[in-house]
Simulated assay, not measured.
Amino acid sequence: MKERLRTETQSVTPLLPEHVSAGRSHARIAWERFRRHRLAMVGLLILGVLTLLAVLAPVIAPYGPDEQDLFSITTPPSRAHWLGTDELGRDVLTRVMYGGRVSLSVGLAAALISSLIGVVVGAVAGFYGRWIDAALMRFIDLMLAFPALFFLLVLFTIVSASVWNVILFLGLFGWMWLARVIRGEILALKELDFIDAARAMGASNARIIIQHLLPNVTAAIIVSTTLSMAYNMIAEATLDFLGFGVPPNVPTWGNMLTGASNYYLQVPLLPVAPGAVLVLAILAVNFIGDGLRDALDPFTEW
């Protein structure tokens, strides 16, 4: 009998999926799937290098961000200035490093603000429904129809432009799409049996939303936040180019492109460095977002 049971057990074991392993958490499974996404790992490496250069800029940058060399204005790359100098004689490499501190911070901070607002509004609308859902959805429609650029013009006539103002502007006008996504997910999830079981056990509405519903839409929140970060970096550069963004004296990749706009023909290499770094950062964030979407989606085949 023992030999027969051992034989039957051995015959059943190979039928189990190879990736099933007892004791592995969802986070570990998602990380293992994320590591197999080559573009996502490349994006993570690029973004990590750019972030490291931005954080360590005061230590490793060869010059100060506003330090001028009046004898080297719009010069090509050399030993003294690896990426050349701009129209005011400032080292381009140094300003690219310091510019990453602001551009990456604006993208991340604005994405976190918009994600927080979008999650709260979408969860409340989807869970409570009825007139609350209708009122919030109509407010979202109004926000989407509102001319954000016009509001920005009015805002900056009242207060001066600054990094924090740009972050708040992008954050307050970038949450509507995520709110719609979260609302749709909550509408589907709240009808499932585990929500009825939580209600039967006496769980409050807040506890159901926070502990039972939101963990099931984590993938949508994370992916939306990463993609929103890429969008915010583009938006910040666009606002700088239009003259409504970060003040010109603050080094950002967008400000560097704006400053080089008058020298494209005379010094073609001047906009290359900030433009290339901005493109790399946006591609890296998008690659990471795609990798996270695939890693967190249980229906994705590997």
Score class of each variant (00 low, 15 high):
L5S: 10
R6S: 02
S11A: 14
S11T: 04
T13P: 01
E18V: 11
H19S: 13
V20A: 09
V20S: 12
A22E: 12
R24I: 09
H26E: 11
A27R: 14
R28D: 00
I29H: 02
W31T: 07
F34L: 15
A40G: 15
G43Q: 09
V55L: 14
P58S: 06
Y63C: 06
S78I: 06
A80H: 15
A80P: 06
W82G: 03
E87Q: 15
T94C: 13
M97V: 07
R101I: 00
G107N: 04
A109K: 11
S114F: 14
I117T: 07
I117L: 15
V119F: 04
A134M: 14
A135H: 02
D141H: 13
A145H: 13
A148C: 02
F150W: 14
I158D: 00
V159P: 01
L170H: 12
L178T: 05
G184R: 15
E191Y: 01
R199Q: 14
I208L: 10
I208V: 11
I209D: 03
Q211G: 00
N216I: 02
T226V: 15
L227S: 12
A230C: 12
M233Y: 09
M233I: 10
E236T: 03
A237D: 03
G245V: 05
G254Q: 02
L270C: 10
A276H: 01
L280D: 01
G289R: 11
G289D: 07
R293A: 08
L296D: 02
P298T: 06
T300G: 00
